[in-house]
Design a protein around this nucleic acid. Structure first.
Lengths: 321, 321
DNA sequence: GTATCTGGAGCGTCACTATTT
DNA sequence: AAAATAGTGACGCTCCAGATA
């Protein structure tokens, strides 16, 4: 910066003003400074700025795993949204117990201005201390006044999926649920139960996987032989379920209908192409970043719930007669 | 830090030594300082340290897209390896032309110590200026003395896949290649050609997708009706190919055998479960981080090529008689 | 002399105050 | 009087040289 100031014939202070877009700079001076910056390929030093201002223009992302396609998609959306707003994105994977707390510690130490947490609502609620100095947005969480929540309306999506199957004439809809600790899994299960209850149908015992396609395959072995409709809590488990049904010679959708959740890119290529509930990951990621930037700026941060949409493909049909 | 020093009754300098694990500290003093740190919940201020030392203990990752499962897996592996070594990880997605250069600029400005680049070899080679002050590791690239290369031996994997199909008795093996700009795609295509040449078989014109399952589906429509074996450059395109074959009523593996590449987690759940070439993403990510840390430390950084392994599942069989 | 510790300077930036036009 | 610019110090840390036991 000193070099730029010297070349432009101004003080470092004026360079700082130009860099930060202060209005109190003479246009001619500004041009001169800008030319000098280009000439020297000057880049502001973020660490120095951070030391001085206390802000790093960096946001952190805490994610349990990137093994699920949904989390990857969220990361992608958040990275894009953060870049657009001039924020760097630091990623911390927090797997295992106490990991969220560790992830926070790591981010806090690194001095991020705020953090977005994916899918860790349960762990958070269970006594992880939320650093007060850190702006926080949690994606998919029960409401909590310690942070802003941005989410998909999982229950609504699950109701839509279940209602679709019931409308096709299925007498019962089984559920392949997500893992016990997950808020999204709980909400999707709730929506399924609600839709069945609204139709006066008793909910059968749900199968329970861990989001992975392998778990979907393993667990679907326990699906009753007379089941005609299965709603899986995500697309990957639905993929495993499709294979399990093929293993036992049950045709989809002729004998069993299957619905997923997420509308992952590959879902349209499954055999058969999967009817599923589409989450708008890009909008969700953008909303999470927007809410976080708002919270960093001292505002409240806008909470949001996006309603997902059912996408009908070839894995659902009326039950066999 | 000043507070810690005051409580422990030492100078700030001594606190610094304790934090940085200097051996020249009396054990009793160290204990005293550590107690004070705990008491005050002291965290070193990374920005201040970075300003002073010129190092940020942060590495950057430049990735074109996280839409492919392979890239997501690499990110996951790199994040874990970086965390283990005490480095923060900043992710930049660089899509489109000039994006890699932009990504570098962004990372450089943010002051990362080094960067890992995924899948951008072609763009890099095409005149992106590599900042000299930045340690650099590129995953999957032709050799280049501007950076360290860590890679899978794609050609060897492709040879193994093709040889497997030939050994089953197929008279020809078609190829569903990756996009034109990709080094990995080119290497896999080369391995396929080499294996065919070694068997004295002329290579048919390859189909060409963009890594996505949708492209695999679209492009496989052009597969000749008499084809009995297809080697796809990644698992997701193989998934699309499986559906395209099902569309036209060709049984896999009875009429057509299909091999993929990557051994993504879902590949074992495809219909049928996919024979594929397994990349060890975790080892590759760990090697990339190790090489980068070496390069940051002033060393040369160890280049590496991992040989992938064929995993036989149910999508390959002898050709129909 | 060796082991341990202290004091002071300065990294690049920006908020504040002072000065000039 | 208002607009534009300059000078100064401090953010928290670590390096260097020197002091103390």
């Amino acid at each position: 910066m000193a070099d730029v100031a010297a070349i432009a014939g101004v003080s470092g202070q004026t360079v700082s003003r130009v860099v930060n877009g202060s209005p109190r700079v003479d246009p001619a001076t500004r041009r001169r400074v800008e030319r000098a910056m280009v000439e020297l390929d000057y880049r502001p030093h973020r660490a120095a700025r951070a030391l001085r201002t206390g802000r790093t223009d960096t946001i952190g992302l805490v994610v349990s795993t990137l093994a699920t396609v949904g989390n990857s998609r969220m990361l992608q959306a958040i990275a894009a949204a953060a870049a657009e707003r001039g924020f760097a994105l630091t990623v911390v994977t927090a797997s295992g117990r106490d990991a969220v707390a560790q992830g926070f510690a790591r981010l806090h130490e690194q001095g991020v201005d705020g953090a977005i947490v994916l899918n860790e609502a349960t762990a958070l609620a269970r006594g992880v201390e939320v650093p007060r100095s850190l702006a926080l947005v949690v994606v998919d969480s029960p409401p909590d006044d310690r942070y802003v929540v941005v989410q998909t309306d999982h229950a609504a999506g699950a109701r839509a999926a279940t209602a679709h199957l019931l409308a096709l004439g299925h007498a019962a809809v089984h559920h392949l649920a997500g893992p016990a600790g997950s808020f999204a899994a709980a909400e999707r299960e709730r929506g399924w139960r609600d839709a069945l209850a609204a139709a006066g149908i008793a909910a059968p015992e749900p199968l329970r996987g861990d989001w992975s396609s392998a778990s979907g395959h393993a667990v679907t072995a326990a699906l009753p032989a007379d089941a005609t409709a299965l709603f899986a809590a995500n697309d990957q488990m639905a993929l495993g379920a499709l294979r399990a049904l093929a293993d036992t010679g049950r045709h989809v959708p002729g004998e069993v209908s299957v619905v997923g959740f997420d509308d992952v890119a590959d879902a349209a290529q499954y055999l058969p192409p999967l009817t599923t509930v589409r989450q708008d990951f890009d909008a969700l990621g953008a909303a999470a970043v927007a809410a976080l930037v708002g919270a960093i700026g001292g505002g409240r941060g806008e909470p949001l719930a996006l309603t997902p949409v059912l996408v009908e493909r070839a894995s659902t049909a009326p039950p066999p007669v």
